[in-house]
Every structure is written in C-alpha cells, then in structure tokens.
C-alpha cells in the first residue's frame, strides 16, 4: 500500500479518537523521568514520550509477570476455572526491536498448541511501531536484523519526518485503522517517500555501537563450550534476574499456586529466569546445572545458538536494555565481545 502522512499536530487528536474506541498503550514519561509503556487514561495528564527509549517493553502486556491461569477450588471438591482477560488494545510508539520481540513471542507461545491467554491478548492488539531515526545509546538492532526500521510485521509503522510522520501499513488491521480515521491522513507524495527513505538510510549510520553478533553466533555454533566466559560472567551474576525480566524476548516462566484461603486460590504463571539458582533445582536439592559456573550459560546460548537452530535467527533483538540493567556487566554486548575476543584453541599456541 502507498504511504500516508500524519501531521504531528494531528497525532494526539488521533490517539484521543483511538482511545475512545478501546485501550491505548504508549510510552509515557512519569514524574520520576522514567519512560515506560502505560495504559493511557488521559492524554492531557500523561506525558507521551517518543524521544527516549522506553525502559520497559511490551512483554508485560501480552505475558504479564503474574498471570492468572486459573482459579481453583478445593473446599469439598477440587476443580479449576480458566481465567481469560483481553480487550481490544492499540499499542503505539513501540520500537522495531520491541515489535520483533512480540513476533518472536508469537512463535514461542504457539509451540505445541496456541497459548490461549497470550493469543487472546495478541488477537486484540494493533501494533503501531515508530522507527528509530536516532538509535539509542546501547542499541544494536541493525546487527540482530530487528531494526531500526522494519519491512514487515507491524500493523502500522511510523517514520518521523520532522513535522509529520510517514505512515505505512503491513497488516489488514493497520489498514482498517487508517481507513477508519482517514481524515487525519493525507497521501504521501514522491518527496515524502524520498524523505522516508533518506531517514531509514541515515538511521543505519547513526548507531553508536557495532556489535558483532554474526561472528559470535558462528563461533557459538562451532564451539559452545567457552568455560572462561561462563565462569567469569557467572561469577559476576548476582542472581537478580533483572536481565531476564527486562528482556523483551525472555519468556521462561514458572507456575505456582497462590492460596487465597484454605478452600481456594489462584494458579499463576510467573516470570522466571534461567539465571536463578533455583531454576533447575530438583527435589532434594539436587541441581543438574552447576550454578557457580553455568548460571548464565543457558541465557546466552538460548538466545544466540539454540534459537538460531530452532527458529533461524537469534532471539536477541538488540534493544540494549540488559546493558543498562546489569551493574555486573553480564549483558549481551559484553558477552558478544568476550566470545569474539576469545582465542580459538588453534590460535593459542
């Protein structure tokens, strides 16, 4: 489809309309200066922030940290009642990496049968991404094939052209939205298209870092046993799980019962992290994974090796969030650098 133009002055009025028709989620800067995706209740009060990278991703909206799977009753009988909650929601202002992460979660949650809870929410979602003219400090999505702009996968993609947005649709739901609110948009002309193309080109040269993802992936495919790397990073890992929680593609979870009374409770799905020492611990305390040396092995191999084997691409989307969150430097960028710096056994002599 042809591109459209949305004048920036029209953005908030458009979002107001969208919000009237359902839930709207967008990056908002709170009074502490943190930018987080939030449900928009009041566009006058909540400060839309399209300047900074949101510290959170969309993960919690589709896969909440505490997600009730069912309620259970065990008074006289024992029984479970499913819980499903989802409402039509437009997500505005997510970046290409976050959108790629949602597409990855789509794959994960459709293994062995579509996950009812996840897809209930996903089916109600319209994703409007905003390409990154100016990538943020730790971004490396150009090296993970997930940005700064996308060719497909979005319902709508916005490109900042200064005083307007260039808007393109990839999916039917995006096109429907454009039709519904067509009076906000004007057709893009040749000049707009050139500007958009220019913005995409410039964005690619605006990255402040080059992270050599492909060489690391190749290296791991050939030899995933990098004991010195695992040991050093495991040593610095403080078992906080921050990287897994903040990561838009970390989807490991646990299932727990939360009793509300003697007679009933909730069964919850909760975020978990493979870096936690309890992640693999079995009855009697036996742990098949030597935590001190291997705690973070799983995390990095999963993203850069196992998912490449399984799904054809690494599941790190280059958002750089784990760089900000880990004071121990146990992050993806550091890991990739360490892998690439390691001497191959043949080189050591």
């Amino acid at each position: 489809m042809k591109g459209l133009i949305l004048k920036k002055d029209n953005l908030v009025p458009l979002l107001r309309k969208i919000r009237k028709g359902g839930k709207l989620v967008a990056p908002v800067q709170n009074r502490h200066g943190d930018t987080l995706f939030e449900v928009i209740d009041d566009l006058d009060r909540q400060q839309l922030d399209l300047e900074h990278q949101a510290q959170s991703s969309l993960k919690p909206f589709f896969f909440p940290q505490n997600d009730p799977l069912a309620t259970y009753n065990c008074a006289e009988d024992y029984s479970f009642e499913p819980v499903v909650s989802a409402e039509p929601t437009v997500y505005f202002g997510l970046r290409s990496c976050d959108l790629t992460a949602v597409l990855y979660m789509d794959v994960i949650f459709s293994q062995n049968g579509a996950d009812t809870l996840y897809f209930a929410r996903r089916k109600e979602a319209i994703l409007i991404s905003l390409g990154c003219n100016q990538p943020f400090a730790h971004c490396f999505c150009n090296n993970t094939g997930s940005g700064p702009f996308l060719e497909y996968g979005f319902d709508l993609q916005f490109t900042d052209l200064g005083d307007s947005f260039y808007v393109e649709a990839d999916r039917a739901r995006g096109e429907e939205l454009l039709e519904r609110w067509s009076y906000f948009f004007t057709p893009a002309d040749e000049d707009d298209r050139k500007k958009q193309y220019q913005a995409v080109l410039e964005a690619r040269s605006n990255f402040r870092r080059t992270v050599h993802v492909d060489p690391a992936v190749k290296r791991l495919a050939a030899d995933p046993d990098l004991q010195p790397v695992w040991r050093e990073l495991s040593d610095r890992c403080q078992d906080c799980g921050g990287c897994a929680y903040i990561c838009p593609t970390c989807t490991c979870f646990t299932i727990v019962d939360q009793p509300l009374a003697e007679t009933h409770g909730i069964r919850l799905r909760q975020w978990d992290s493979c870096t936690f020492s309890g992640f693999t611990r079995m009855a009697g305390g036996h742990n098949p994974v030597n935590h001190a040396e291997q705690a973070i092995r799983r995390r990095f191999l999963h993203k850069l090796k196992i998912d490449v084997e399984k799904h054809g691409r690494p599941s790190c989307v280059g958002c750089g969030r784990c760089v900000d969150i880990c004071f121990g430097g146990v992050d993806m960028i550091r890991f990739i650098a360490m892998v690439n710096d390691l001497k191959l056994p043949a080189e050591e002599k």
Binding site: T251, C252, F253, I255, D272, F279, T280, M282, R298
Partner: peptide, 24 residues
C-alpha cells in the same frame, strides 16, 4: 532424563538439557 518441569509442553524453559527440552 529428569529435569525440573513446570509446563510440560516445551514453553517454560525449565527442563532444558543443552539444546533440548526434556518434556518434549
């Protein structure tokens, strides 16, 4: 092989054994 398991259907990640999941 025995592993800590939570989902049993290859999603939760707990039962990893190298590049396999023991449950599936």
């Amino acid at each position: 092989m025995e592993r800590h398991m939570k989902c049993g259907i290859g999603v939760c990640g707990h039962c990893h054994l190298d590049n396999r999941l023991v449950c599936v």
